[in-house]
Design a binder for these strands. Structure first.
Lengths: 194, 194
DNA sequence: GTCTATATTGTGATAGAC
DNA sequence: GTCTATCACAATATAGAC
């Protein structure tokens, strides 16, 4: 598979359009032709950049995960205290959702996992693990400093926080009045602080 | 749309097979022919019971929501204390997930909402609202008795708990080592109790 | 990098017989 | 309630020209 950093500008436009469709409709819910129409080209031109749909989506996941991990690094650099890091983390989900109520790329794909090519599922697994690992580290740090409650372990809290934010995006789309990731982020924070 | 209580045994077999496929692969991820194959009949026989795919899935949602609400009523009858009711509630999600790592029907459909017929989305919205309403009532009751913490309001806690359990199912499929709804249920309970 | 044209398969849905 | 046969179209993907 191509690495996303070697993409031409045309390939990036294809990737952007496909990611948006993926976040709105899921892997099985959009076609190569949908992508082509959004970009303003024809189907075979999409295949010129990405031979198969699986490769296209695997590249989306790769780029998405890379960008996300860069955001995590930025948060750690900018925020020193665990509560501030957690608040900024929730903000990442809120920002994605604020843009046309888009779902997390990997949240969507995780739900569909059984219907996906193996190379896509692998990228999703890595993204999930990276998130839980990062959260567990931040939470453990906060627990040592007495800023985060100690009772459920760092890893249990991390899984719960990550899942709650992913779940909040799903609820937010299915239900107009539901709390989105922004509101759930606040609720989580007040529960998790010592 | 037909009501699920008037279904013939053959129609119920079709509905069962379709629901399983829906929970594993999503609305766009299974076809009428997939359903037919699982039941052991041909495509037109599926259409004989449900004229369109939209009607088939809308009926699944209707039946699923009805059964779920019956479970909620049973929990309220069997468990008097809010913490026990919440634990039993989380158990509903754990039980679904324990069966072949199936997703909640409406969790799956909520993620796909943008690609779905209106009659399906309407059923999903109703299911979400029923869950948050029920949880908010149970939590408010627990707050009055001093068994549930008072700080985030009942409705905020309810949205968070529901979303966390839905999210845990998504994580559980995408990531082998992740906490499923069972583990997340325990974490949630220990956070929410006073 | 993009196109037209095409192959192949899958899709939801219908007609009409048994 | 189920079937065969069929329709109209949409899907992923490829060949080969410009």
């Amino acid at each position: 598979m191509k690495h996303f950093s070697e993409l031409t500008p045309s390939a990036e436009r294809v990737l952007d359009a496909a990611q948006s469709l993926l976040q709105q409709r899921g892997y099985s819910g959009f076609s190569i032709d949908d992508v082509a129409k959004d970009v303003g080209i024809r189907k075979p031109s999409v295949h010129h950049h990405f031979a198969t749909k699986a490769e296209l989506v695997a590249t989306i996941v790769q780029r998405y995960a890379h960008r996300f991990e860069a955001e995590l690094a930025r948060i750690e650099a900018e925020q020193a205290a665990a509560p501030d890091r957690l608040a900024a983390y929730a903000g990442l989900f809120a920002r994605t959702f604020a843009d046309e109520r888009r779902l997390c790329v990997c949240g969507m794909l995780g739900a569909e996992a059984d219907a996906l090519p193996a190379e896509v599922v692998l990228g999703v697994e890595r993204f999930f693990a990276a998130n839980v690992d990062w959260l567990a580290r931040v939470i453990a740090h906060g627990q040592r400093n007495g800023l985060v409650r100690r009772k459920p372990g760092a890893r249990e809290l991390a899984s719960m926080v990550f899942g709650a934010l992913e779940g909040a995006m799903v609820l937010g789309r299915g239900m107009q009045t539901a709390a989105g990731p922004k509101e759930v982020g606040h609720t989580l924070l007040s529960l998790v602080l010592a």
